[in-house]
Design a protein around this nucleic acid. Sequence first.
DNA 1: ATGCATTTGTTCGTATGTATC
DNA 2: AGATACATACGAACAAATGCA
Lengths: 265, 265
Amino acid sequence: MTTARPAGAATPDTRAFQRIVRHVEGAIAAGSLKPGDRLPSERELVDRFGVARSSVREALRVLESLELVRSTACDPRGPQVQPFSTGPVRRSLAMLTSTQALSLPELVQFRMIVDASANLMAAIRRTDAQLRALERSIARMRAAMEPPPDGAARVEFSRADLEFHEIIAEAGGNQLIQVYGEVIREAVLRLIERTISAAEDQPALMLRSIGHHTAVLAAIEARDGPRASRLARESLYAYYAEHVEPVDREIMASLVLECGGRIGG
Amino acid sequence: MTTARPAGAATPDTRAFQRIVRHVEGAIAAGSLKPGDRLPSERELVDRFGVARSSVREALRVLESLELVRSTACDPRGPQVQPFSTGPVRRSLAMLTSTQALSLPELVQFRMIVDASANLMAAIRRTDAQLRALERSIARMRAAMEPPPDGAARVEFSRADLEFHEIIAEAGGNQLIQVYGEVIREAVLRLIERTISAAEDQPALMLRSIGHHTAVLAAIEARDGPRASRLARESLYAYYAEHVEPVDREIMASLVLECGGRIGG
DNA sequence: ATGCATTTGTTCGTATGTATC
DNA sequence: AGATACATACGAACAAATGCA
C-alpha cells in the first residue's frame, strides 16, 4: 500500500481537487444532490477526502464557476447546490463567438433548425392564452418603434423579440428546444451586434421583423405547423444569407428548400 | 485610503481570484492573449495582482476548468493559453441535460431535428475520405453482429453507431450540430438503456439499424441532402413513435411530414 | 435581542518531486 | 550532472460576519 497522500507530488495522476469536483459533479448528475441541498463545510470536506483545505477550496471555486454550488461567506451550513442554470453554456458559447472559434453561419444554421422546430411544435400545442401573449410581444415591438428609435428603444425591441421566441418555445412544450433556443438566440444577437447591425438601416429592419413575427403568429394561430416552420427558415435566410460564404449559403438554402420554402424577397 | 489588502476580508466586493479570472478571460476574448501564449508564472501573478498564492491558484484552476489555460508542473514558462475548444460547452450541456429531467419524446424530437440537419449538411460537404470512414463504421456494426450478440457485442455495436453519427456531424462542418448531437445521442442512449432496450428483439433491431445506416450512407454519397435528412426523421419516428403519447407522436409526425417524409413501415 | 461558536476569505510559511537550464 | 525554479500540496493564522442557542 502506497503512502496515502504523498505531500509534495508534483504531477499526480489526478489532482487532489479534481477528485472532489468529479465526486460532486457525479452526485448532482445522478440526482443524489439536488438544488438547495448543502455540501459539507470546507473543513468537513477536508476530513472526508483526506486533502488540505487549499485543495478543497480550489474544488469549490471550480464548482462555483460552473454555477453548480455557491458558498456564501460565513455560512456554517456549507456550500449550497444551486438551481440548474444555462449560465455556463451561455458563457462558454459567448467565449467561443468572441474568439471567432464559432462562426456566424454555424450559429445561424443552428438557429434556423431550432426556431423552425419550435414554431412547428408551438403551432400544434399552443393555447389561446399563449396566442395573446405573442400578440402582446408584437405590440411591445411596435411600441419600441414609435419614438425615433434610439439606443434604449433598440434594446427594448430586442427584448420583446426574444420574449416572442421564448413564448413560442415554451408553447412547444419541449424543454430542450426551449433551453437550447434561448442560448442560441442570445449568442446570435451578441454576435450580430458586433458586426452587421450598426451599418444597416435600423427602422427598415425592425419593420421587416415585425412583419415576419406577425406572419408567424398567424400561422401558429391557424395551427399550420409547416408554414410556421417554413417562415422561420425563410426569414433567417433572408436576413443572413448575404453575410456568409457560398458553401454556407448553400446549406442554408437547403434548409429552406427541404421544407418546401422559397428563397428570395 | 483603505488598507491595500485587508488580510482577512470576509466578503470583499469581488473575490480576489475573480479579478484574475476576469482579467485573463477578457484578454483572451479581446484577442490580446492567443492560444500558445504564456501567462506569467504563479509567483509573478502574485506580485502583479497583489494577492496571495492561493488566490492565484484558485483562479488558475477555474481557468483550467474552462479549458482556457493549462498549467503544466515544473514549467518555468508559465501556464499556456489553450486552443479554443467546444469542450466546456459540451460538458455544461451534458450536465444540463442530465439534471433536467427530460422525457423520451423531448429527447427524440430534438434528436430528429439535429440528426436530420447533420445528414443534410454532410451530404453537401462530405469528402470521399469521410465516406470511406462511414463505410468502416457500418462494417464495425456488422462485425458486432457476427457472434450471437452478447452484452459486450451490444456495447461495440452502440459504439460503432455513435461513431457513424459523429463522422456525419463532423462532415457537416457545423460545430454546434456536432456538440449538441453528441450530447443528445448519449442522453437518448442512456435513457433507452433504462427503458425499452431490454424487452425488444435485439438482433432484429440491429439489422434494421444497419439497413437504415446503409440507406443514409447512400444518400450522402449521392449528395442528396433532402433524402438523407428525411431518412433520419423517418427512422427515428419508426423506432420511437409507439413509445410516446399521441400529442408527442403528432409532433414527431409533423417533423417527418414537413420535409416530405412518409410515416409507417 | 445578545453572545458565542463556527465558518469563510485571505495570507504566509514549508516541504517535495520534477523539469529546464 | 548539478543547480535553479516551478508547481503541487499541506498547515497555521487572522479578521469579519453569519447562524444558532
